[in-house]
Design a protein around this nucleic acid. Structure first.
Lengths: 231, 231
DNA sequence: AATATAAGGTGTATTTTTTACACTAAGCAA
DNA sequence: TTGCTTAGTGTAAAAAATACACCTTATATT
């Protein structure tokens, strides 16, 4: 613990797991580190929290600096504070996740030096990450897998207008299992939180599907009962 | 942020919600603060984390110092880091809860100066607490209320041997609603995680009930399916 | 124009789970 | 012996979850 960099006074950091859904694949954002330790490794977007910052704002700032993304609601899921997490001493890390919509601008780019680049990586292809970030990722992924079963968080990953098949395949990727089409639709529609639009999918070379939107109004009204997708 | 006490270097703390079940009442441990700010107020047991401590060990140490309790497994549930939580500056607090068995030695006593006394208080009678501890308590209580519906955490609050009626009334206190006796028993027994003992309750002035134990072995085997007590 | 292709969209029967509900049995005390 | 208090038990009805297959529609190809 001798000779630490200046920010080691604060000794705590925020790391973010940013989920995106693109072409049927669930991805997260990783940065390539441009600083020792673990220079050149991939890591979750994250950095040191300033001494007088609220954690939430730190999370926003740090996500912006490492990826260029702004104004994204993140949910805190765990705080990691074991000894030996960081080679230079005890570092406490508050971890957040967010699910975002990748429509159009899915190009991400760090705006500071500590990250060399930011990239979207399929959750099935995550390499070994810096520090204990692999563990943090697993814990966060487990969290959303669990949460999606009883809370409508999947919509945040989809474009505003989506088909039921897209919604189902997102559930399938997150839960990592096949769902029955008829049962999925029956159940999803029974929650009465979707709005059926008069529009159809465009640009597909087969029968176009109806488009739906998540309906916040209906959700607030009808969502006493919880979602459940066990099978 | 001028003139802060020495430990303000570290600016983070651990707070604990310790649940106990006693004579049909769900209680938590509070301490009376013996330090400014909020001297004389009740607060959750908690204190500053040292610079080179792991959070988990800090939580153990702090719980011991404020209440005399040792070796209690605590589960982290949220980290609070808004500005303005602490009148002297930004303080980040990692919050834990634990559920403990109050058999015999339920007397608690601080072993340092920052707490004047430690007391068990019924969750229905919690006064306004120091800092944002009322909020932390509500969040932790919500967490266990939620968790008890799908994980067998209630047993940790009961004596090793308990009756089904005791178990049910614990569920009722935590969930804050009446449950049907027959349905409760049917469902609880269907999980096959209890061991029926050859013993009966003693010292009651009415028909004595059978005693049961939580059976970790069976639990590990049979607990793919989750508990659920919605009604 | 006809055909092939690929996904969209739909219903029913069966099983499982949840719920509602009330009386007898046992033990102790007076 | 009687009264009091809690223990302990079963069934029918409703609701939810599951398993399962075919026709429809839009486009692309010949």
């Amino acid at each position: 613990m001798e000779n630490l960099p200046a920010h080691f006074d604060s000794v705590f950091t925020v790391d973010c797991i940013i989920f995106g859904f693109d072409e049927g694949e669930l991805k997260i954002l990783l940065i390539e580190r441009n600083e020792e330790p673990f220079k050149g490794w991939f890591a979750l977007p994250g950095y040191f929290v300033e001494k007088t910052e609220a954690i939430e704002s730190a999370a926003q700032r740090i996500l912006y600096e490492s990826t260029g993304l702004r104004g994204i609601y993140m949910e805190q899921f765990y705080t990691f504070g074991a000894l030996g997490r960081h080679p230079q001493g005890r570092v406490i890390t508050v971890a957040y996740y967010a699910m975002i919509r990748l429509t159009g601008q899915k190009d991400v780019k760090p705006v500071t030096d500590f990250a060399k680049q930011a990239v979207w990586v399929n959750v099935k292809d995550i390499p070994e990450l810096a520090f204990d970030h692999s563990r943090i990722f697993r814990k966060g992924f487990e969290k959303i897998r669990n949460k999606i079963s009883y809370q409508p968080i999947a919509f945040e990953l989809l474009p505003e207008k989506f088909t039921l098949t897209q919604l189902q395949s997102l559930y399938e990727v997150i839960l990592n299992k096949k769902l029955d089409k008829r049962n999925f639709r029956k159940k999803m529609l029974s929650y009465d939180i979707l709005k059926e639009l008069d529009e159809k999918q465009k640009g597909v070379s087969y029968r176009a599907a109806k488009l739906y939107k998540f309906d916040k109004r209906k959700f607030a009204k009808n969502f006493q009962k919880e979602l459940s997708f066990s099978k």
